[in-house]
Amino acid sequence: MINKEKMKILSVRSIAHQTIEMVLESEQISKVALPGQFLHIQVGNLTLRRPISIANNCSETGRITILFKVNGQGTNELSSYQSGEMLDILGPLGNGFPLESRSESTVLLIGGGIGVPPLYYLGKTFRCKGIKVISILGFQQANDVFYEDQFSELGETIIVTNDGSYGFKGLVTDVLERISAFDCYYACGPKPMLKALTDKLTDKEGFISLEERMGCGVGACFACVLPTTDGNGYKKICKDGPVFPAREVKL
């Protein structure tokens, strides 16, 4: 059930270059929000809400964490909100990562840049189920890196930067050989990264989370569609996704 509620901002802090962590207090949405789902946030008087993935959620305390990169008018204005202020939020939206009836013993999380956040809530959920979590997190450079400690608490974590200023130099696909064995991968990041990953990991089951500029966020406006690989259909990222089986949609 999708709710529209006013959430109180509990804290706002910068955690990396142009990267903000915001903790929100939710009454309804937190109770049902699953890893991979997102919030559609009304920022000031802007016409379109901004879709931001859920980076962490505690249904008992009602605390939802979002992480976002200041990258335009909407995220810039959102970053100026102070703790104590209220945000009008629609959520939880979309279909998250499949969690039920999964039988993996080891999962690989692969995040690129601001695609990293939803994987944290996912990894935490897997860890609670006793599933071993390995993470590869890719960033542009050292000052973009965030949540290394949080992911390290979940399990082995490899950091990669494009310029080599922190961790391994290169792309997330360059360090895949270092991972001994895993049953399934879960990835979120820029489209070229997801394309390279799914092309490389053809023998593995995987799920990817996508983003796109959205209108309604609920499946009515057809702004965020993409074609399926079978060539005769399409999926709405906001409603059918944002998570899809690795090769279901054309990247």
Binding site: L46, A223, C224, V225
Partner: peptide, 19 residues
């Protein structure tokens, strides 16, 4: 099927769409 994405953009007091 419609147009390629992006299909929407924020503007001052409005939005553009090309679905």
């Amino acid at each position: 099927f419609g147009n390629p994405t992006p299909r929407v953009a924020e503007t001052a007091s409005g939005m553009l769409n090309a679905i």
